[in-house]
Design a binder for these strands. Structure first.
Length: 940
DNA sequence: CTGCTAGCATA
DNA sequence: GTATGCTAGCAGA
């Protein structure tokens, strides 16, 4: 491999004064239609992607340029839409096969090193027009690559046009030859013809020939207009009819050259930032592999001197290859490329001091802990790894313990030496899920501070719907594949403790974990940094939330285990009795916990009617079915009661006492911060977010969530948070008013839907309205509402119609959200969290409509998640600032639970709901309701 | 022992 | 009709 054998474009020959502008949007459609329906390994369409990639490569080869931009249309309205409501109105929605390729196209264009511009509110044409004008003014030769004739109006001595797909080039003479008018008359020419594609009318019956002829005769559009009376024939008639329109038409077809690109192009109005970045070889290879683009992959491998795959995984070393293009990368991210990796074990103090010196000097350090347990509260350190540079890491083995294990540095002394650095908030650290490592250090009496970044949260904010394990991130963003934990420690019953993994293998594995984390950070952070919304979610919501969660998890929850065990005994007794009754009714013994045996008894032996089937075809015995059968037969009722008791016992009263940590005497759940795609938390080991509340039996479990002597449990929950968010986003006047006036929202809904006064709403009507409101939040249809209310689909549809007639703003919101989701592939929360919907344009009907319901629900559920995270940050901030002894102990989506010493009760009762309500100023007031009691049940 | 299904707890 | 996590049963190792 050398610096000069590249078959890639030769940037060494860059002409410093050429500016290459690519009309990405015009090529999207052309590439899509020009190429056959090519598919990747997963069946995903790739035709347009291949077309664009090969076009860009050809273009860059032919026009060595130092500056360039690939410009795409952004979603949303432009000034033309404001000017003319029908603008582009006839345009068919983008075919789903093309829509699915938009995101990958943007991705690959960036990976190829092209600056990408996409400016909300400004069409690609106008961005290009503006850049061309600025480029020409600053002495560049501008080459505009487009498939769209409209841009011919930009041509002048400094600006030429090229259609890369047809290889046609147009300078001033070329434009005149092709269109019959010079570039500065193209606007006039287009105005007369109109543009069917964009739904801009011109003069009826006037095509290219007539337009060019008139302009030649009269010099310009103004000349044509001035002489309109003298034009003969039908065309003349039509011209006179169109006279009022033509000025508007001209404004629509004129490409703007004076747009403000501030905020979208660093250094604007300079175009210096539009430098080519370095192609991200590893990520490109991963991209090509993912989409099955073997030809591109082979070309790139050959060009970068990489052995084609399946041979040994030679490190993708390509430094220097693109060096000549690195001079002006602008601020576009370019991944550092990792050559041979180096992972070294630190086994003596001189090595330790050497590495610790490097760690202290580094601006950002990645770290990872290896432990003897997956339980965060009890894991002990086995080894530590650090990295200050992708590809390089040290591993400090500490308590590896197996026959022949090398002598290792003493854990306590190493930790004592590292402690000041680990606890220094001024020494920035990055990790993958540092909440876990924070617990581990805390187990050793170290408070990890200076958590500047977390790659788990970066990935979650960027693409919540994709996997976030370090392994996946390295593969997806770096094209790197490290050792997996399974490879190192085995899996299942054969898995060995990490302390028994050999130091050599552990060094490789743990070293990779920290240096790949740093590497992933360098790939992901620039993407967040330049996106103000996502950056806000990451820096102001997720990172601080992680710290709060660690605090909550460590506090844990006090459980009255004896009370639960007593409940278990009572439940067991009743279950035994129910079991005997069920066996008698069935005429034989069977396992009441087996849906299969229940089905056998009910539907075969006793001949009861089956009501529905499970996914795999067996007759269902779920709650709905048994409830229906219970009206006519005695056995199903016994089964239902047994089921419900069995659930309580098996999931809660038996299990929670087993989860009490013997060291702390409390239960420490784990909050998963990066699993729920909507932004919600999830709780596990144990799940404290699904403790029963609906039935009296179930609520007894909550009595076992107690406060210690001298304290109380305080529960504060947001009232109707998702409906309030719906009111805020939809700006529906009726809903806004109901909340502003503090009216019970279900009552208000019933009043509107049933046409009665608010104080005349019956409890039945309110119940219906409540179901409707919940249905709306879930993106319901008539069928779902009907089955929930037990009414005819037609009647349900009637209710929905009446609802939407009264709440027109809500209907508009639902329609717009669906459209927006389809157009951009994602929806957003009020705070800018992005919720991707990969199936929103799926050709598969059920999948697509499922995604549409998600699109409706996600902004509401997600905004609620954002709000309560902000509330947790605010509450924790207040507790710490005021040095309170009150502790936050649980979060249940719209509820915060705290343990409050009696001395602070008065304060907490007022301040907690006030803090929760004050985290955002929406168009409706936020309300948090508070309750206090000796246990969670009585705090409601 | 592992992975899947059915069912059900919460917001 | 949205979003989760956990359990018992059961089939195939």
């Amino acid at each position: 491999m050398s610096d000069t054998n590249s078959s890639l474009p030769s940037p060494a020959a860059s002409h410093p004064t050429t500016l290459l502008l690519v009309d990405g949007s015009s090529y999207l459609y052309r590439a899509f239609h020009a190429l056959p329906d090519l598919r990747g390994p997963g069946g995903e369409p790739t035709g347009a992607i291949q077309g664009i990639v090969s076009m860009l490569q050809k273009l860059r080869q032919e026009y060595p340029a130092a500056h360039a931009a690939c410009v795409f249309d952004a979603k949303g309205k432009t000034f033309r839409d404001d000017l003319y409501a029908e603008y582009k109105a006839q345009r068919a929605p983008m075919p789903p096969e093309l829509a699915a390729q938009i995101a990958p196209i943007h991705e690959v264009v960036r990976l190829l090193g092209w600056p990408v511009l996409e400016v909300p509110g400004i069409e690609a044409d106008d961005v290009i027009g503006t850049l061309a004008a600025v480029g020409a003014a600053s002495g560049h030769q501008v080459v505009v690559s487009t498939g769209d004739k409209d841009l011919a109006q930009l041509v002048n001595p400094q600006v030429t046009l090229v259609n890369t797909m047809s290889a046609e080039k147009l300078d001033e003479a070329g434009v005149l030859a092709k269109f019959g008018v010079p570039p500065d008359r193209i606007v006039d020419y287009l105005t007369l013809m109109g543009d069917a594609v964009d739904n801009v009318p011109g003069v009826e019956k006037v095509g290219p020939k007539t337009a060019a002829k008139w302009i030649a005769e009269h010099g310009s559009l103004d000349g044509v207009i001035a002489n309109a009376d003298s034009v003969k024939g039908v065309a003349g008639e039509n011209l006179r009819k169109a006279l009022d329109w033509l000025p508007m038409g001209r404004r629509l077809v004129t490409v703007k050259t004076d747009c403000d690109l501030a905020g979208h192009l660093p250094g604007w109005p300079s175009i210096e930032a539009l430098g080519f970045g370095r192609p991200q070889v590893e990520a490109l290879l991963a991209f090509y592999t993912r989409l099955g683009l073997r030809t591109f992959k082979r070309e790139l491998e050959r060009a970068s001197g990489i052995e084609p795959a399946d041979a040994s995984p030679a490190p993708a070393r390509s430094h220097g290859l693109f060096a000549a293009s690195n001079e002006d990368e602008g601020d576009l991210p370019a991944l550092p490329e990792v050559g041979e990796t180096s992972h070294v074990a630190v086994l003596d103090w001189p090595d330790f001091e050497d590495w610790f010196g490097r760690i202290r000097a580094a601006p950002l350090v990645a770290l990872d802990t290896e432990t003897d347990s997956l339980e965060p509260m009890r894991a002990r350190i086995v080894g530590l790894s650090f990295s200050v540079k992708p590809g390089e890491a040290c591993y400090i083995p500490l308590t590896h313990n197996y026959p022949g294990a090398p002598e290792q540095l003493p854990l306590d002394e190493v930790l004592a030496r590292l402690k000041p650095w680990l606890e220094d908030a001024g020494r920035p650290k990055v990790g993958q899920n540092l909440k876990y490592d924070g617990h581990v250090f805390a187990n050793h009496g170290i408070a990890l501070r200076g958590i500047a970044h977390d790659t788990l949260l970066q990935s979650y904010v960027l693409e919540a719907h994709k996997p976030h394990s370090l392994e996946s991130l390295a593969e997806r963003h770096l094209g790197r594949k490290g050792l997996s934990y399974e490879q190192v420690a085995g899996k299942g019953a054969q898995q060995i403790p990490f302390a028994q993994v050999s130091v050599e293998i552990a060094t490789q594995y743990s070293g990779e974990d920290s240096e790949m984390t740093l590497h992933v950070h360098e790939a992901l952070w620039p993407r967040l940094e330049r996106d103000s919304k996502l950056r806000y979610v990451y820096e102001q919501i997720e990172l601080p939330t992680a710290r709060v969660l660690q605090t909550i998890e460590r506090h844990g929850v006090l459980i009255d285990a004896a009370l639960l065990q007593q409940q278990s005994r009572e439940l067991a007794e009743r279950m035994v009795a129910l079991e005997a009754e069920a066996h008698a009714l069935a005429g034989q013994p069977f396992n009441l916990g087996s849906p299969k045996q229940i089905g056998e008894i009910l539907f075969n032996k006793l001949g009861l009617p089956a009501k529905k089937k499970t996914a795999s075809g067996a007759p269902s015995t779920d709650e709905d079915v048994l409830t229906e059968l219970a009206a006519d037969y005695p056995l199903p009722a016994k089964l239902l009661e047994h089921r419900s008791l069995s659930k309580l016992k098996g999931t809660y009263t038996d299990k929670l006492p087993l989860m009490v940590n013997p060291d702390t005497g409390r239960v420490h759940t784990n909050y998963a911060q990066a699993v729920a795609v909507t932004g919600r938390l999830a709780s596990n080991d144990p799940n404290l977010q699904n403790i029963p509340i609906r039935t009296a039996e179930g609520r007894r479990v909550r009595e076992a969530f107690v406060a210690p002597p001298g304290s109380k449990i305080l529960s504060a929950d947001y009232s109707q948070i998702e409906l309030r968010i719906m009111a805020h986003i939809s700006e529906d006047e009726v809903l806004l008013k109901a909340f502003a006036d503090g009216i019970d929202v279900h009552r208000a809904t019933a009043s509107e839907v049933f046409g009665v006064a608010v104080d005349q709403v019956s409890s039945e009507q309110r119940r219906y309205a409540k179901v409707i409101n919940f249905g709306l939040i879930y993106g319901m249809g008539a069928f779902g509402l009907a089955s929930n209310l037990g009414i005819e689909t037609k009647a349900a549809k009637d209710y929905i119609d009446r609802y939407f007639a009264r709440f027109a703003g809500v209907r508009r919101y639902m329609d717009e959200t669906r459209l927006q989701a389809k157009a951009q592939g994602y929806v957003e929360t009020v705070f800018g969290r992005r919720l991707w919907l990969p199936e929103i344009n799926s050709p598969n009907g059920p999948r697509r409509t499922g995604a549409e319901r998600q699109a409706i629900n996600a902004p509401m559920q997600g905004t609620a998640a954002d709000l309560i995270k902000l509330a947790m940050i605010a509450v924790q901030g207040a507790l710490e600032a005021e040095n309170r002894a009150t502790k936050m102990i649980m979060q249940v989506h719209d509820e915060l639970v705290l343990e409050v010493p009696e001395a602070e009760l008065e304060w907490a009762r007022v301040e907690i709901p006030r803090l929760m309500a004050g985290v955002a100023q929406l168009k409706v007031p936020l309300l948090a309701e508070v309750g206090v009691g000796p246990n969670w049940e009585q705090a409601h």
